[in-house]
Amino acid sequence: MLQVSIYRYNPETDSAPYMQEFQVDTQGRDVMVLDVLHMMKEQDNGLAFRRSCREGVCGSDGMNMNGKNGLACITPLSEVVKGNKLTLRPLPGLPVIRDLVVDMGLFYQQYERIQPYLQNDEPAPAIERLQSPEDRDKLDGLYECILCACCSTSCPSFWWNPDKFVGPAGLLQSYRFLVDSRDTATSERLSELEDPFSVFRCRGIMNCVAVCPKGLNPTRAIGKIREMLLADGT
């Protein structure tokens, strides 16, 4: 029997959040945390959490498992459970709507702020725009982001200034467009980022790198943005 302690909060009935204990019979199998959540939902129909693809590509089920952010669907129990105990909490730093469901509004706002779309002021050719494999390689490790928010919600700088600091996820995407050989808005993008908060609130704590379920490295991307700002602004 796995002991699961899970954060519960229903705004209609609970005056404050609380931790609830569950006993889950996994029959000794090393299932994913998401499977455990489904088993718990059969015990308590009211348990709320997001999920969709169940294979780690949609980014729905980011949550805090035994203190570390990750995706429930690709996290086997063997990776997180210590001493037969699993503690599940919503992603830290964002307002909780219900149980493990957080309001991701601030996270999405920061994503939208970096203008996450290709900008090219030249007329498009009749076929595709050409891009060398070397230039395309520069997008690897950037475009794969699934917007699960595991990184930004583990970042103290984002906790303190979620309205001003773009956060690791947004900055990773910002760099994805800055470095795309097909994008022509580089200097406009950079001028939007040179203030003291958007990029420079990153203090290189690297929690984002430690938790990214896709193995991406936002800290490195932020460093690259700083280099570009420096080259552009000096």
Binding site: P196, F197, S198, R201, G233
Partner: peptide
């Protein structure tokens, strides 16, 4: 762009450089 009047160089880049 987040504007703020109380920081030193009025830009994150100059603060960072300083």
């Amino acid at each position: 762009m987040v504007t703020n009047v109380t920081n030193l160089g009025r830009s994150g880049l100059s603060d960072w450089l300083i």
